[in-house]
C-alpha cells in the first residue's frame, strides 16, 4: 500500500511538473506583455510534428531528436511574437487574447491542411519508457526524469531572473515596462527573450507529453494549455511562483482524482477538476499568490 501511494506521489509530481513547465511559459509572457497566449499549446504540436518529421527523415539519435523538438518550439515561439504579436503589442488584453486564439486556430488548420487530422505516431527516446528501481520501489523513468528536469529548468530560470541583467529587466518589466526602457533596455529584446523561454519550456514539456501519448494530432495542444492556464489562475495570474505552485497543485489534484474516482466516473476527471478549482476561485478570486492590482500598475 505504501508502495502504491509513493508511486502515485511520483506520478502526481510528474504530471504537476508538466503543467508547471507550461504554466511558467504562459506566466512569463503574460507578466511582461499581458498576453493570454492561447497559441502556446500549438508550440507543443510544433514539437510533436518536428519529432514526427525528423524521425521520418531518419534522424536516429534520441538526443538529437529531443534537441530538434525543443529547438523548433523555441523558434516557433519567437516567430509568433515577431509575426503576430508584435503588431498588437500595446493593445488591450482582449485584443491580444483573441489574436492568440486566432493564431492558434490558424496553426491547427495549417497542420490539418498539410499533414492530416488523424494522429501520427511519434517516437521518443526508448529509455523514457523503462522502469527504474529506487530503494526497492519501481518507478517509470519518464516520471522521475520529468520531475528532475522540471526542477532543473525552474532552477535555471531562477538564476537567469536573479543574476542577469536581462532577467532583472524581465522582472522589472512585469510591473513597469516604460521605466525599464528608460534604463536603456530594449523592449524588443526583453519580449523576445520572454517568448524564447516560453517556447523552450513548452518544448521540454512536449518531449514528456509525447512520451506519454505517443502520437501527435493538430488539435492536441489545446487541453494541456488550458490546464496550464487554469494553473496560472490558481496561483495568481502573472505570478511565476504562482504558476509553478498552481501547476503542481492541479497535477496532483488530477492524479488524486484518478486514484479515488470510481472507474465509471473517470471520464469526468477534467470536468470535476475544473469545477473544484472554480469553486475555490470564487472564494479566492486573486489566486493563491496573486496580488491585487494597484493604481499605476499594469491592469490585469
Amino acid at each position: 500500500m505504501t508502495e502504491y501511494i509513493l508511486q502515485q506521489m511520483v506520478n502526481a509530481l510528474a504530471v504537476g511538473s508538466e503543467y508547471a513547465l507550461l504554466a511558467l511559459g504562459l506566466a512569463i509572457v503574460y507578466s511582461i506583455v499581458n498576453l493570454v497566449n492561447f497559441a502556446h499549446g500549438e508550440l507543443i504540436t510544433v514539437s510533436g510534428y518536428a519529432l514526427f518529421f525528423s524521425a521520418a527523415v531518419w534522424v536516429q539519435n534520441p538526443w538529437l531528436l529531443i534537441a530538434l523538438a525543443v529547438l523548433c518550439s523555441t523558434l516557433a515561439a519567437a516567430a509568433l511574437e515577431r509575426v503576430a504579436f508584435r503588431s498588437i503589442r500595446n493593445a488591450s488584453l482582449n485584443t491580444g487574447m483573441l489574436t492568440a486564439f486566432g493564431v492558434s486556430i490558424i496553426i491547427q488548420n495549417v497542420f490539418v491542411i498539410f499533414v492530416a487530422t488523424r494522429p501520427r505516431a511519434v517516437q521518443t527516446p526508448a529509455f523514457l519508457a523503462e522502469i527504474v528501481t529506487i530503494g526497492g520501489l519501481r518507478f517509470p523513468v519518464l516520471q522521475v526524469v520529468e520531475t528532475l528536469t522540471t526542477a532543473v529548468a525552474i532552477l535555471a530560470l531562477v538564476v537567469l531572473l536573479r543574476s542577469t541583467t536581462i532577467g532583472l529587466a524581465m522582472r522589472a518589466a512585469a510591473r513597469d515596462f516604460t521605466t525599464v526602457r528608460l534604463m536603456g533596455v530594449r523592449a524588443n529584446r526583453v519580449i523576445q527573450v520572454a517568448f524564447l523561454i516560453s517556447g523552450l519550456l513548452a518544448g521540454i514539456a512536449a518531449v514528456f507529453i509525447f512520451s506519454r501519448r505517443g502520437a501527435v494530432d493538430p488539435f492536441m495542444g489545446f487541453v494541456p494549455v488550458l490546464k496550464a492556464f487554469v494553473a496560472c489562475v490558481i496561483g495568481g495570474l502573472g505570478s511565476l511562483p504562482g504558476a509553478v505552485l498552481g501547476g503542481l497543485l492541479l497535477g496532483m489534484f488530477e492524479v488524486f482524482l484518478q486514484v479515488v474516482l470510481p472507474a465509471d466516473a473517470a471520464a469526468y476527471r477534467d470536468a470535476i477538476a475544473f469545477s473544484v478549482v472554480g469553486l475555490v476561485l470564487v472564494l479566492y478570486p486573486q489566486g493563491l499568490l496573486g496580488k491585487r492590482v494597484e493604481l499605476g500598475d499594469k491592469e490585469a
Partner: peptide, 26 residues
C-alpha cells in the same frame, strides 16, 4: 541623457541593489 521619472518609479519587486544594477543595463 537620462530621465529620473516622476513618482520615482523604482522597481518595487527588485532589491535596492538590483535596481542599481538594472540602472547600468547599458
Amino acid at each position: 541623457l537620462t530621465l529620473c521619472p516622476e513618482g520615482r518609479r523604482v522597481f518595487a519587486d527588485l532589491t535596492v541593489r538590483e535596481n542599481l544594477i538594472l540602472g547600468a543595463a547599458t
